[in-house]
């Protein structure tokens, strides 16, 4: 635990208009780690990602990537510092075809995956590269949303509920992709309600409730924390 975190969040507060939605959130992610944020709907998981990314602008506290302050950067500079965002609604553009969607985010480092590599990892996307982005199935749109960030060379992936509303076989496929990204050394902050999915990839868990962090524990202690999980997640 002595290694300096790659992404460091300290005392993060955030507001939607007048409503105070994050209360002093602390979060650390080390290089190459996969960390999962668990919590009920409305606990503040998506808000935490949006606040880190800078999409939610009204925030206070500390957000640092590799020691660099992100809080005061304009939104488009945050991506350039190495954060890649895959939103919950996937954000596939209807007016762009699959290939254009894939090529949309500008590269932020030169070690991103090549387009060939991406099409090898996601053969469906290659077959449908000239289709309108939103004509893809939900699972394919999710793959595309992940793939377009991989192309940019972002070091940290902020992944918001990638399995939501998808069939079990697709969820399995996304799990395989995450394992592969982990093996390649990608650092991942995953928001998930499905902890059975998350346990396969997560090194550590954070548990959120009402805009606060209520617990954090390493992946292998998931079972030991099951009682609290059931209580907080209401499952």
């Amino acid at each position: 635990m002595t290694e300096a975190p790659l992404l460091e969040v300290r005392g993060l507060n955030a507001w939607y208009g007048e409503s105070h939605v994050l209360h002093g959130v602390d979060l650390d992610i080390r290089e190459g780690e996969t960390v999962t944020l668990l919590g009920r709907n409305g606990a503040g998981k998506t808000t935490t990602l949006r606040a880190i990314m800078g999409i939610l602008r009204r925030r206070e506290g500390v957000i640092r990537l590799r020691g660099q302050d992100l809080l005061n950067l304009p939104l488009h500079r945050v991506a350039q510092s190495g954060l890649g965002y895959v939103p919950e609604e996937r954000g596939i553009f209807a007016s762009l075809n699959v290939a254009e969607n894939l090529m949309l985010p500008p590269a932020v480092a030169d070690n991103g995956m090549s387009v060939d590599e991406i099409y090898r990892l996601f053969p469906n996307l290659y077959e449908r590269r000239t289709s309108q982005g939103t004509k893809l199935s939900g699972g394919e749109q999710q793959m595309l949303a992940i793939a377009r960030i991989l192309r940019t060379g972002a070091r940290v992936l902020l992944l918001d509920e990638p399995t939501e509303g998808l069939a079990p076989v697709i969820v399995q496929r996304i799990g395989d992709v995450l394992v592969e990204l982990k093996e390649r050394g990608m650092t991942i902050l995953l928001v998930e309600q499905n902890f059975r999915f998350a346990r396969k990839v997560a090194d550590r868990f954070y548990l959120m409730e009402d805009g606060r962090m209520v617990n954090s524990f390493p992946g292998h202690q998931l079972d030991a924390n099951m009682d609290q999980l059931h209580e907080v997640l209401g499952v």
């Binding site: 488009h76 945050v78 949309l104």
Partner: peptide, 19 residues
């Protein structure tokens, strides 16, 4: 493509690093 995408969702395009 930036222009078309930003017409749909400017915030997300900016979050991808486009000015």
């Amino acid at each position: 493509a930036y222009l078309r995408a930003a017409t749909e969702n400017a915030t997300l395009v900016q979050a991808f690093g486009v000015n």
